[in-house]
């Protein structure tokens, strides 16, 4: 089987999320990559170095500059004449594009796979990860999104992919990019951080959230996450949300502070290696999955912890 993996990038460098998708693809068949973007030659070169990669298709066109799904899906469909599976990381970008490709190919997408079980057979989480389904596709071509935490990252060096310029559909021209408001942060990105400190509704305000969590994150070189309640209340931006409908993370250590542990939150962090919970309610559900729990008031505990680390 020949797979076509969507490379996630910002036209300058490749995003890590791609690497787990490459590993999944290598378990399915031959790995070809697609870099769709504008002035994205540097990304193509990085992509070609990823271990195990065959061809790297580079589609450099202003139409793909902002990864508009209408444009990128049209391109992918044109390239799928020569591929058997389209594979995207389950990022907001992958989730935006892949189902569009699937519908155009008349294929049922398999979302967020956790493992490759055999020819066209995969496992995937359903019901906020409270159940794992094994599904087999009866479609001729496959369209898949890959959960980043479920696969090791492919090596970024050692490959010698062959770069090939390609072109294809650019969509219907009915959508346009207006603007972007990206969070600038020196902290590790949530999906690749090895430690995450995450705050919930209990912080009570945006000020407390940052005054308490930022110094702790600095000490641990950690990424900062949040529960939905904290994001909804405006303590943290939307891209901090960890959970069923936010980011899925699995760091070495996840500290849930003032987070109750609703199933929707657990869905996004329960595969973390070590889970630490700080909560004033000793019966909070988060303690049922925490490796280390500390019952108490976060307004006292967090500053003390930051100081003693």
């Amino acid at each position: 089987m020949k797979t076509l993996v969507l490379v996630e990038h910002d036209n300058a460098s490749m995003n890590d999320a791609t690497l787990a998708a490459v590993t999944a693809a290598s378990q399915i068949g031959e790995v070809h990559l697609l870099v769709a973007g504008e002035n994205c030659a540097a990304v193509g070169e990085q992509a070609a170095k990823v271990a195990g990669v065959g061809k790297v298709h580079v589609a450099d066109d202003a139409a793909y500059g902002h990864m508009l799904p209408e444009a990128v899906a049209a391109l992918v469909v044109d390239l799928m004449g020569h591929h058997d599976a389209f594979i995207a990381p389950a990022t907001t970008n992958g989730k935006n594009i892949a189902p569009r490709v699937a519908a155009l190919l008349d294929v049922m997408q398999i979302s967020d796979i956790l493992s490759v079980e055999g020819d066209k057979t995969f496992t995937r989480p359903i019901y906020a990860g409270n159940a794992i389904a094994t599904v087999q596709s009866g479609d001729e071509k496959l369209v898949i999104t890959v959960r980043g935490t479920a696969f090791d990252k492919a090596e970024t060096e050692g490959g010698s992919g062959e770069i090939e310029a390609v072109s294809g559909g650019t969509g219907n021209g009915l959508s346009e990019f207006v603007s972007q408001d990206l969070a600038k942060s020196d902290r590790p990105e949530l999906t690749s951080a090895s430690v995450i400190v995450s705050g919930g509704r209990a912080f009570g305000s945006k000020e407390s959230f940052h005054e308490l969590l930022d110094p702790l994150a600095d000490k641990l070189d950690a990424g900062v996450g949040a529960s939905r309640a904290a994001v909804d209340a405006g303590y943290a931006p939307n891209d901090y949300q960890v959970g069923q409908t936010g980011k899925i993370v699995a760091p070495e250590c996840y500290m849930a502070i003032g987070i109750s542990g609703a199933i929707q939150h657990l869905a996004g962090m329960k595969d973390s290696k070590t889970i630490v919970a700080i909560n004033k309610d000793e019966d909070a559900p988060i303690f049922q999955i925490a490796d280390i729990g500390l019952v108490g008031d976060l307004f006292k505990i967090v500053p003390e912890l930051t100081e003693k680390l």
Binding site: V107, M108, I110, T121, P125, I126, G129, N130, A131, I132, A133, T134, V135, Q136, S137, G138, D139, K270, I275, E282, F287, Q288, I289, A290, D291, I292, G293, L294, V295, I301, E304, L305, K308
Partner: peptide, 24 residues
């Protein structure tokens, strides 16, 4: 349907660890 679900299973359960007394 295009997909056949051959099995639905429970995810691995995570055991609660221990509670510690204080920040130290």
């Amino acid at each position: 349907p295009r997909l056949t679900t051959t099995n639905v299973s429970e995810p691995p359960v995570r055991q609660a660890g221990e509670k510690v007394e204080d920040v130290d």
